[in-house]
Amino acid sequence: MSDKDDIPDSVVSLPGYSIYRCDRVNIIGGGVCIYIKNSKFIKFSIISQPCHIGDIDLLHLNFSSSHIQFSLVCLYRPHYIPEENDNLLFDKLFQMSHNNSNLIICGDFNYSDIDSKSRNFIQCLNNSNLEQLITEHTRFRLNQTPSTLDLLLTNSSQLLTEHEILPPIGNSDHALIGTSIRTIHKSNNTILKLKRVIIVINYSNLDQELASYHSELYFQKFIFDISSLESEETLDQNSTLLMLRQKNSLWKKFKRTRLQTDYICFRTYSNSMSRLIRQDKATYEQNIALNANKKQFYRYVRNFSITHVPVPVLKSSNGNLCDDLTEISETLSNIISSL
């Protein structure tokens, strides 16, 4: 991601979310951002601390509320950085871990083999009291060995729960990492207790049933399904939900079998679904643009322009800079009323 002068927040904003950015400076690519879902029920005070360590982009957010305090860090480490930048990163991880009791670090570390080729990084985790929670592969590319590039670190293992590897977004070859933050929410002096439902699956029998299907016929079946779906002009909501469930099913099958044919099935279906969704979105936007009711069009446009705009510094009528919000509002009111 480039800097904010080239790409404003309104271009990359998501409806219902606030965005925090750490942009790569003077170079194309790189950069990290964090989207925080706006909530009416839990209010956090958030302090943003973006920084750069050589070519490493790091965004540090401190969250505090009446229920919990924790720090969330998102970083991107290029694979080509020199050793001295790695040492600076290790010092930064050590410092953050010792200054924050509830620390969560996630991102693309680009260590292709974290078990054997990254001894200095593993030593850093031990010295910093950080635990690495991801044990499965997170990057999958055809004709390449899967690798664990995306990591999830914490110095409080009780803080996070329910880690899972989810299907990639769009055409990305990086899987999503899902996790939950464990909190205690108090309402009227009552502690809400969360109950987990555990479902026991006999994977041995399941694998035997899945193995009975012929991979090539299975692949041809989904090619046929994709062709029939692409013949539709638009998708309704139910069709989209069914396709998402089918995509997740294909991804889970590949995770179980690790077969190349199953991955090709997943990737082909995912690409076709993305094309259909883009076509459906274009058709929807064309319909609301031609609709006589312009309120629907303006409401749709506003959803993509919601962003936090800072209050500008103004000069009052006597030439002094306004530093008080009340004075700024009165100055703006006088300017508008004079037009």
Rank of each mutant, 00 (worst) to 15 (best):
V12S: 08
L14K: 13
P15L: 11
Y17D: 04
Y17K: 01
I19Q: 06
Y20V: 06
V25I: 08
N26E: 15
G29N: 09
G31W: 13
V32W: 08
I36P: 01
F41M: 13
F41I: 13
S45H: 04
S48C: 04
H60C: 12
L61R: 08
L61D: 05
H67V: 10
F70E: 07
S71D: 13
L72W: 11
L75Y: 09
R77W: 09
R77H: 13
P82Y: 14
D86E: 12
N87W: 09
D91Q: 15
D91K: 15
F94H: 12
N102A: 10
I104K: 06
I105P: 04
G107H: 10
D108K: 10
F109N: 14
F109L: 11
F109S: 08
N110E: 05
N110R: 11
I114R: 06
S116R: 15
S118Y: 07
R119V: 11
R119S: 15
R119W: 04
I122G: 04
I122K: 12
Q123M: 14
Q132T: 07
T135M: 15
F140R: 02
F140G: 03
D150T: 08
L151P: 01
L160K: 07
T161E: 01
H163N: 06
E164F: 01
I165D: 03
N171Q: 09
D173H: 11
R182T: 15
L192F: 13
K195Q: 05
R196S: 12
V200P: 00
S204R: 09
S204C: 05
D207G: 02
Q208M: 15
Q208H: 11
H214V: 01
Q220G: 00
F222G: 01
I226R: 08
I226F: 02
S227I: 07
S227A: 12
L229T: 01
T234P: 00
S239F: 04
M243Y: 05
R245W: 01
K247R: 14
S249L: 12
F254N: 01
R258V: 06
Q260G: 00
Y263I: 00
C265D: 03
T268S: 10
Y269N: 14
R275M: 10
K281S: 07
A282R: 08
T283A: 07
Q286V: 06
A289T: 11
K295R: 14
Q296S: 14
R302T: 03
N303A: 09
S305M: 07
N318I: 08
G319Q: 02
L321T: 03
D324R: 04
N334G: 03
I336W: 08
S337Q: 14
S338Q: 09
S338T: 11
